[in-house]
Design a binder for these strands. Structure first.
Lengths: 113, 113
DNA sequence: ATCCGCTATTCAGTGTTGCTATCTACCGGT
DNA sequence: ACCGGTAGATAGCAACACTGAATAGCGGAT
C-alpha cells in the first residue's frame, strides 16, 4: 500500500469499521471482505483484527462467539451505545476536516491556470 | 484537541502544509498562523516545526534563511518539483479515500429512518 | 492418508505520525 | 531590568496501521 494511504487511514479506518458494524454485526474475516468490496482492497486481515481488539477493549462494541461451519469460531462484533456515540463524533470530526481540506483544494485549483 | 482529530490529521496535515506552500513560500511561524486562519486552530507550533523538518529531510521543499526584523532569522520553505509530485499524489490519495468514506456515510444515512 | 486451500483469529515487532512540554534566541517598549 | 511578541528546535510520549508469521478447523483433491 502507498505510504500516504497508510498514514491517511490512521483514525479513519476505525470509523470505517465502526460504520460497517453500525449497519449490522459482523466478524473480522467478514469485515475484511467487506472492506475489499468497498474499494479498500489493500487492507489486510492483521490490520483489521488488531483494530477490533482495540475497539473491544475500549468498550465500543459487544462481542459474541459463534461457532462456524468452517474453521475456528467467529467473533461477531456489534456496535453498542458507547460505540454509537463515538461514531457520531467520528462523523463530526470527519466533516470538519474534510470541509476544510476541500476548501484548501479548491483554493489551490483557483491558483492554477 | 480531540483524540480522533489528532489521529485523522496523521497523513493529512503534511498535505495541508504542502498545499499552503504550493500557493507561496512561507516560514514556520507564518504557516502556523495560516493554519489557524483556515480553521485548524489547535495545531501548535511544535507540531508544524517537526513536520517542516521532516519534509525538508525528504527533499520536498527548498529552504532559505531570511533575517527577520523581529526575532531570530526565518526559515522560508518553498515547494520544489519533488514536493509538487508528492502533493499531486496526496490529492489523488485523498480523493480516493474521501470518495469511499462519503459513500459509506450516505449508505449509513439511508439505513437510518 | 496426506496435502492443499479456504476460513478465521492472534500476536510480536516496526515505522510514522502528531502532541506535550520545554528550551533557546532576538527585539522593542515600558 | 523585565516582559511580550516573534521565531525555531527538540526529547519523550501515545496511537495507529503494517509486516510477517503462527495457530486452528474443515473439506476436497491427489
Amino acid at each position: 500500500m502507498g505510504k500516504q494511504m497508510t498514514e491517511m487511514l490512521k483514525g479513519t479506518l476505525e470509523g470505517i469499521v465502526l460504520t460497517i458494524l453500525a449497519a449490522r454485526p459482523a466478524y473480522g474475516y467478514e469485515i475484511t471482505a467487506g472492506l475489499r468490496d468497498r474499494g479498500f482492497s489493500d487492507i489486510v486481515e492483521g490490520t483489521v483484527y488488531a483494530l477490533l481488539v482495540r475497539i473491544e477493549q475500549r468498550g465500543l462494541v459487544d462481542v459474541e462467539k459463534v461457532p462456524s461451519e468452517k474453521g475456528p469460531p467467529r467473533k461477531v462484533y456489534s456496535l453498542n451505545a458507547l460505540g454509537g456515540e463515538y461514531l457520531e463524533e467520528f462523523w463530526r470530526t470527519w466533516s470538519f476536516l474534510a470541509e476544510r481540506i476541500e476548501q484548501l483544494h479548491s483554493e489551490r485549483a483557483e491558483g492554477e491556470h
